[in-house]
Design a protein around this nucleic acid. Structure first.
Length: 365
DNA sequence: CGCCTTTGACCGGCGC
DNA sequence: GCGCCGGTCAAAGGCG
């Protein structure tokens, strides 16, 4: 999908009126930011609740023009409420400049369609098809699904404290990488879901889509270690064997393509990441992606830039063990050189991201 | 034993 | 109406 991977998603009806229809655009500026430090500097990392991250440009409802998106982000624990701060008050000069500039090129953006209808709400609230008999599966209309789409780095994918379970993987037409599907496994009946796929335009970036709502508090630790470490290398071809990614451990492990979509298995993380909120929030990733967010009215595409909410959102890296970091290094070395790769213990390979993917961005709303 | 990943099949939405 | 495509299910097998 490369440059054209516009993702149509619907922001879960967490807080948006059922009659609303909007598009959320996440503009990943990461690759365009020469110096991410200013962005990081504008961040504050409090830890007084379960939302360890604070993102500039979000928080103050009175000034925040993208309230809907803010809520979405909040619901996903991407944001932390802040006392007061207008959209522009905390952004760096670089970001301000970006705001004053015309919309970035399409290839740097992810457009998320938000078409919330009563049916959408109904479906999402219903909790998902899981509760339905196999013969009465609830399949929401694709365009009506509410999603929050973000682009993340490997590190960011690692920093998700939610527990995710992979339930599917599909090759996506037009994309060399498969899309992986995860649902929250922290609590039964939790409707939070997550999709992770690798950006064709930048193998180091992952496109993560969140949908649904968490029906439980953010876990302080991952509750399951079982089946998280898969040391064996599977030669089994994946449906999307098109992946050009380095065979990740996981990849190799189970699906290279998969790895492609998500570098680290949440599960693989589980055992080694205690998820200390404070700690995680205090250490922004060097490669944090900087995203500009825009709320767009789907019915008024011509006015897509009208809201001018290109707020920069930084998703700081959370917890990453040394092993994982080392694993990344190994993966990168391997990917740049040989075609065959194996991590020291297989289980920590950044490419083994099944759940990690899940881990990616911090859970659905 | 419980939870995980993998993966083919199934199903429904959507475009033509 | 048909076929493509994406999302989900569920069986099988693995790991701690």
């Amino acid at each position: 999908m490369a440059d054209g991977w516009d993702l149509h998603a619907v922001v879960s009806g967490c807080t948006t009126p059922a009659s609303s229809s909007a598009t959320v655009t996440v503009n990943c500026q990461t690759n365009n930011v020469e110096d991410p430090l200013p962005d990081l500097a504008s961040l504050t990392f409090a830890n007084d609740d379960n939302t360890p991250f604070y993102y500039p440009g979000f928080g103050d409802n009175s000034d925040f023009e993208c309230e809907g998106l803010e809520e979405i982000y909040r619901s996903f624990n991407f944001l932390k409420p802040r006392p007061n701060n207008p959209c522009t008050s905390s952004i760096s000069p670089t970001q301000q400049e970006a705001q004053s500039l015309p919309p970035p090129p399409p290839q740097t953006m992810v457009q998320v369609q938000q078409l919330i209808t009563p049916q959408t709400i109904k479906n999402s609230r219903a909790g998902s098809s899981l509760a339905l008999p196999a013969t009465v599966r609830s399949r929401r209309r694709k365009n009506q699904q509410t999603k929050l789409v973000r682009q993340m780095s490997h590190e960011e994918l690692l920093g998700d404290s939610w527990a995710w379970r992979k339930y599917g993987q599909k090759p996506i037409k037009g994309s060399p990488y498969p899309r992986n599907y995860y649902r929250c496994s922290t609590s039964k009946g939790c409707g939070a879901r997550k999709q992770v796929e690798k950006s064709p335009s930048d193998p180091d970036i992952y496109v993560v889509s969140y949908s649904g709502e968490h029906t439980h508090p953010r876990p302080t630790h991952r509750n399951s270690l079982a089946g998280t470490t898969r040391a064996k290398f599977s030669s089994r071809p994946t449906a999307a064997g098109a992946s050009s990614e380095p065979p990740s451990s996981a990849g190799t492990v189970a699906n290279p393509p998969c790895s492609s979509s998500s570098p680290v298995s949440a599960s693989s993380l589980s055992p080694s990441t205690p998820l200390i909120e404070g700690e995680s929030s205090a250490a922004p990733p060097e490669n944090s992606l900087t995203d500009a967010i825009e709320i767009l009215d789907d019915d008024e595409d011509d006015e897509m830039w009208e809201t001018e909410c290109d707020e920069v959102v930084l998703i700081p890296n959370t917890v990453m063990s040394e092993d994982i970091l080392k694993g990344f290094e190994e993966v990168r070395r391997a990917s740049s050189g040989s075609t065959r790769f194996q991590t020291r213990d297989n289980s920590l390979s950044p490419w083994n991201f099944s759940a990690a993917a899940a881990g990616g961005g911090g859970g659905g709303c």
